[in-house]
């Protein structure tokens, strides 16, 4: 007898339940082990190749040394308000302070540096982020944090940290959402005008 419906009940249940009402009887066997625990097989054939998205093509003022070169622009390590250049930059990165040269390099302005002084270029900026944010860096390297596109078992492109987070103000910027779902076709017309705030005050913005 072909039992197609056993295929999507787990093999364990399929083997133990032979009654036609397998799906009904299955409920009795569930105490053996939690059903949400899957048998995760060992081995596998991973052939993922990750490319980190470059940073420098997205920088409008790179290389920095076009402007920042001695003696024209002596590095000024003082914390101050920018009035001439970089005026749109807001530094809102943690409470520990630090100014430009915490990450940028005074003596080699086209490079960043890790906390131990190792120089890295802008395309490897994630190393700089990772030197403080170790847990996120670990997740990012493992593919658990950040946007990765491409092939799930092949060539992947991963966004570098500063391509999503402004390094000077790294909180992910709020954005305008896409349009909200259509109200159910049969909802009375007047409810269509209900804004979210009104909705929250009465009935949590339920659809009609």
């Amino acid at each position: 007898m072909r039992l197609p419906w056993l295929a999507y009940i787990s093999p364990r249940l399929g083997a133990t339940v032979l009654l036609p009402f397998a799906s009904l009887a299955a409920g009795c066997n569930q105490s053996e082990e939690p059903l949400h625990h899957r048998q995760l097989p060992k081995g596998g054939t991973s052939s993922v190749v990750v490319t980190v998205e470059a940073r420098t093509p997205l920088l409008s003022t790179y290389p920095c040394s076009r402007c920042h070169f001695s003696p024209n622009r002596e590095p000024d390590p003082r914390e101050r308000k920018f009035t001439e250049f970089h005026t749109h930059k807001v530094l809102n990165h943690g409470t520990q302070g630090g100014w430009c040269y915490r990450c940028h390099t005074k003596d080699d302005i086209d490079k960043l540096h890790l906390q131990d002084g190792t120089l890295v270029d802008f395309d490897h900026a994630y190393e700089v982020c990772g030197s403080c944010h170790g847990d996120k860096f670990r997740d990012w390297k493992a593919g658990l944090h950040g946007l990765t596109t491409g092939f799930w078992n092949g060539a992947q492109v991963r966004r570098s940290c500063p391509n999503c987070h402004d390094p000077h103000s790294p909180a992910f910027a709020p954005m305008k959402p896409e349009r909200m779902p259509e109200w159910p076709r049969t909802a009375p017309a007047e409810t269509h005008a209900m804004g979210p705030e009104e909705g929250e005050s009465e009935g949590h913005g339920k659809g009609h």
Partner: peptide, 19 residues
């Protein structure tokens, strides 16, 4: 935009989803 979504092969121990 936030990279909240992860997808992959459950049978591959090195896949993002397994990790």
């Amino acid at each position: 935009p936030t990279g909240a979504r992860k997808f992959g092969n459950l049978n591959d121990p090195n896949s993002d989803i397994r990790k």
